[in-house]
Every structure is written in structure tokens, then in C-alpha cells.
């Protein structure tokens, strides 16, 4: 098992420009079951062996995808996400960076009504190693195994995963949930899925400064998650003057610094690593000498 995606997941790729086309090829080579592409004006063509349609609706009618991955440029990306959801995609993965926050806020309401799950935007996507990769993660560093990984970052996720893999701890599913203020699924959504996944034995959450998602995750873990969770928070050396207005913290009543998050997680009983190497140690202590 794994969460959200596996080798059977039928995937459509929206936005087949330079990046979208490149990553579609990479995904296909990894083994992802890509059934269609969507690019206005390229309908009727074949790219990397899959048929391309002008609209998500056409693609859905002909190929019945369950998931869509969005590479559409920022000004049009929110609309593309809605197009996928309205065409029946159960999961949308939005890689696109730079979508206006208010537009995201508007579309998450409709996604909830449609029952569509959203990963991202501004995210590297997700991967269930040896099964399927949806997004831009470098497949080579992942190995199948018992560790779930959920992170707000891209390359830092790769760093963490690489060290886990080198130490012999493979991953069930790894997710970059996206770095924007408004994203679809958050830590607690993924943690809930990991809790129910038989393959996952432990979850690593990788967080950073800004917002209070990590605190929400810690509270959720304490209340709902029986599996061991290990945390890692970056940005302890970030200058405080560079923070945005504290208005977000007024709402949540919590502080968005790295220190505040580390303290909060430890208070809720979640061990927090100071370095990437320590993540591997903490995982090792909890999974036993599996490697």
C-alpha cells in the first residue's frame, strides 16, 4: 500500500509546455500511468505516447483519469485546477508556482464541494516509490519502504529522503505539500491517510518558518495518530525582520518562528531533529535496526 497514488492511478498532465512536457516524460519513465495530456491547441496530437486533448473535459471523457497534475502557468493555473476537478479528477497535484493567494482561497471552496483533493500549489508533488510519481521529484533517490514523508519544501525533501534511503529506510509515500499560504491538503490530511495505510510504520514531517501548520499537525498527532512521528523544522537561523506581518499569528494565537514550532512539537511528544542526520537516527530508534 501507499497513500493517494499507486501503480494503477490514471494520471492526466495539464500544461505541456517546456516543463510540463519534460516532467511528463520523466514520470512516464518512472512508471506513472499517464493516460492523457491537456493543452489548448495541441488536441489530437500524441506526446510521449499519450493522447493530448484541448480540454480536461475531453480528456476525462476519453481516458477517465483519476488524478491530474498541473504545470499550467500561474495566471491560468487556478482555472486549470477547477477544470480538472469539474472533469471528475479526485486528486489534483498543482506544481505551478506563483498563483495569487486570493484565487486559491476562492477555488478551495469549490474543490471541497466537488470532493476533489488538492496537493499544492507550488509543490514538487508526491511519489509512492516503485509505483508512481506525480510531479517533479527526482525518482532515483527514493526506495520503497515503511516511512511516510510530508514536507513543505522541495529540495529539502530530497535531502531528507536521500539520507533515509542511504540508511536503508525506504518510503511508502513522500509528499511536498507546497509552500504557499493557501494550499490544499496539509500535514493533518496526509497524517490521517498515513495512519490508515498498512505499509506506513512511521511518518517524518518536515516543516519551516511561517504560518502555524506544524503546530496544527502536532496537535493532530497527539489526538489522532498512533504511529510514531518524527519532526524537523528549518529556518532557525532566519532573520526575524524578514517575517511577514504577524496577522496570521493573531488568528492562530501561535508564533510562526522555527523555535516556537520546535518547542510546540516537543511539547506534544514529537521528537524533533536538529539536523538531517538526526532524522535518520530518530527514525532508526523507532523502527529498530531495520537496515
Amino acid at each position: 500500500m501507499s497513500i493517494l497514488i499507486d501503480e494503477n492511478t490514471r494520471v492526466m498532465v495539464q500544461g505541456l509546455g517546456r516543463d510540463g512536457s519534460f516532467h511528463a516524460k520523466q514520470m512516464k519513465e518512472y512508471g506513472t500511468n499517464i493516460v492523457a495530456g491537456v493543452h489548448p491547441g495541441k488536441g489530437g496530437s500524441i506526446i510521449h505516447g499519450f493522447p493530448v486533448f484541448n480540454t480536461a473535459k475531453d480528456a476525462a471523457r476519453e481516458t477517465d483519469p483519476e488524478c491530474s497534475v498541473i504545470f499550467v502557468p500561474a495566471p491560468f493555473a487556478a482555472d486549470a485546477i477547477l477544470a480538472a476537478a469539474n472533469a471528475g479528477a479526485a486528486l489534483v497535484v498543482a506544481v505551478t508556482e506563483g498563483i495569487p493567494v486570493l484565487e486559491m482561497s476562492k477555488i478551495v471552496i469549490e474543490l471541497n464541494e466537488l470532493g476533489t483533493r488538492l496537493a499544492g500549489p507550488n509543490c514538487p508533488g508526491l511519489i509512492s516509490p516503485a509505483k508512481s510519481k506525480i510531479g517533479i521529484m527526482p525518482g532515483g533517490i527514493f526506495r520503497k519502504g515503511p516511512v511516510g514523508v510530508v514536507s513543505r519544501s522541495g529540495t529539502l525533501t530530497y535531502e531528507v529522503v536521500n539520507q533515509l534511503t542511504l540508511a536503508g529506510y525506504g518510503q511508502s509515500t513522500a509528499i511536498g505539500m507546497g509552500g504557499d499560504p493557501v494550499v490544499g491538503m496539509k500535514y493533518d490530511d496526509y497524517l490521517e491517510l498515513f495512519e490508515d495505510d498498512k505499509e506506513t510504520e512511521l511518518v517524518v514531517i518536515v516543516g519551516e518558518i511561517g504560518g502555524t501548520d506544524e503546530q496544527d499537525a502536532a496537535t493532530f498527532v497527539k489526538e489522532r495518530i498512533s504511529k510514531p512521528v518524527v519532526g524537523y523544522i528549518v529556518g532557525r537561523s532566519a532573520p526575524p525582520g524578514k517575517r511577514m506581518g504577524h496577522a496570521g499569528a493573531i488568528i492562530s494565537g501561535a508564533d510562526s518562528t522555527a523555535e516556537a514550532k520546535v518547542v510546540f512539537l516537543r511539547d506534544k511528544g514529537i521528537p524533533v531533529a536538529d539536523t538531517v542526520e538526526q532524522i535518520v537516527d530518530l527514525v532508526g530508534e523507532r523502527l529498530g535496526g531495520r537496515n
Partner: peptide
């Protein structure tokens, strides 16, 4: 973002860049 230390950092990715600053500190 300029800071006040003496080790210049060049990193790909914001999360990894923060992790790099953290490990130096």
C-alpha cells in the same frame, strides 16, 4: 537575503537553503 555572518551560501531550493544556514549555525 543578506545576513551578518561570514559564510556565503549558495543553495538550490528555499528549504534546503534554510537547512544549510541552520547546520552552519
Amino acid at each position: 537575503v543578506q545576513l551578518e555572518g561570514d559564510i556565503g551560501c549558495m543553495v538550490n531550493g528555499a528549504g534546503l537553503a534554510m537547512a544549510t544556514m541552520d547546520i552552519i549555525k
